[in-house]
Simulated assay, not measured.
Amino acid sequence: MNTVVIGLQWGDEGKGKIVTYLSRYYDCVVRYCGGSNAGHTVDYGDFKIVHHLIPSADGRFKKNMYIGVGVVIDLDVLLRELEQLNNLFPESSTLLRVCKQSHLVLPFYRELDGRIDAARNEPVGTTRRGIGLCYANRALRFGLRLEDFEDDQTVKERLRELAKLWNLELSIETVLEHLREAYERISHLLIDNVEAFENLKNKNLLFEGTQGVLLDVDVGTYPFVTSTNCSSSGVQSGFGYPIKIDKVIGVTKAYTTRVGEGPFPTELKGEEGERIRKLGGEYGATTGRPRRCGWLDFVLLRYAVKVSGCDELIVTKADILKNFEKIAVCVAYEVDGIKVHELKNLKDIHRVKPVYEEMEGWKDINSRAFTKFLKKMEQEVGVRISYVSTGSKVDEIIAL
């Protein structure tokens, strides 16, 4: 069984917890896209872990982990995460493998990333971690890969090319020394893509997506998106080989959030939005930025389910809306006076006016009001809900 877990909103849906919980049923967790701009927070109760690069496998179950070719690697971040993993689950770090053909996020990419975003007429709100620039250099064939460190001369030539391309004054030797030291510390984890595929081809794999469908570079709210195919469509290229996906699980909050710039039809800019933000602890795990909050949007959820091929839903943060006397859900948009229930694309999303239905709030997840909310979601989206997260901790989840 090969399953992919993706976010159906603008990221931050709680995928880290979900992947950690589900990982007990799989042989290996595979990261297939993104970089250290991801922040998957996992609450074990006594402690929390924030995964940026290392897959969110449950350390208590000693599962294999693989970082695929579609992930871009910041070695400094990876080393910090490995240290954290070694401290909490000493045996788990030996179960990680990293694709040799993965591209590296170089230290000077971060500054360039910020410079590029600042030069836009309208900044997209990048995390300024150098992720987009790394993917751009990969596409331009100027990228530096982990396997290049098998020959220092190759690395030097790549660094010179990059300095020339981006008009940088670099101390090649200083940069190389820093990268070489970091590379040596993780070299024992490296594996060629072909060998990884051979090792994993008969295993049950859980693919971990990053960000969310609405941030996918092709089907998201472009240009306010990330730089990768973070929807289910990115699994093949991010793994590096054709692979059959048996199930696509979409994760959605009981409300909607967004970090950074871009359209957000159901955003609540007043007291209700602030209340959700505080109750939900809605601050970015990677950047610490406050998340924009709003009501659940069924129009966007239907779109995300359709373009991702989602088979089932997992709902998170339903507990955050406890004790709201009334909640609202967006069931349609009004565009130029016409009511719209389905979207073919997102190009005019900034122009829509949400059409709401009001629903009774709930005191707990066993209440009639909450059951009615879940049934409404399934009817509107057309996909069944398999789990509901009932709290922040890994095991605070119930199957339906």
Rank of each mutant, 00 (worst) to 15 (best):
R384G: 12
V381Q: 05
R115C: 10
L146E: 08
R145K: 15
L400I: 15
V77C: 14
R97G: 05
K100S: 10
N87M: 11
R302V: 01
E181N: 12
G34K: 01
D58N: 15
V105F: 08
E91A: 01
L159V: 11
G143W: 02
H40E: 11
I18S: 06
L162T: 00
R97T: 14
S386I: 06
S102H: 09
V194T: 11
L104M: 13
L343I: 07
R138P: 02
Q84Y: 03
S389R: 00
L165E: 15
R277E: 11
H350V: 00
P123N: 08
H188C: 08
V335T: 07
R128M: 14
W362F: 15
K62T: 01
E13C: 06
S232K: 06
T257A: 11
V72M: 09
C28H: 03
H52C: 13
D27A: 06
S231I: 02
S23H: 02
R110Y: 02
A196S: 14
Y109C: 11
L279C: 09
I54N: 01
A136G: 06
L189A: 06
Q379E: 15
D27H: 03
L214N: 00
K339Q: 15
R110G: 02
R258Q: 09
A139N: 14
M359S: 00
I243Q: 10
L176C: 09
G70D: 13
R180Y: 08
Q211V: 01
A399P: 00
C33E: 13
L214R: 01
F324Y: 12
R128Y: 09
P354Y: 02
N2W: 07
V71R: 04
R138E: 13
P242C: 05
V124P: 08
C330T: 10
V299D: 08
S233Y: 01
K253A: 06
D74F: 02
L8H: 02
Y387I: 02
N2R: 07
S233N: 07
N137M: 12
P107F: 00
N2Y: 05
F47Q: 10
Q211C: 04
S308Y: 03
V77E: 15
E208V: 01
Q9G: 08
T256Y: 06
S102R: 03
L268W: 09
E83Y: 08
F89S: 04
P123D: 10
D76R: 09
L374N: 10
V394R: 15
T286A: 12
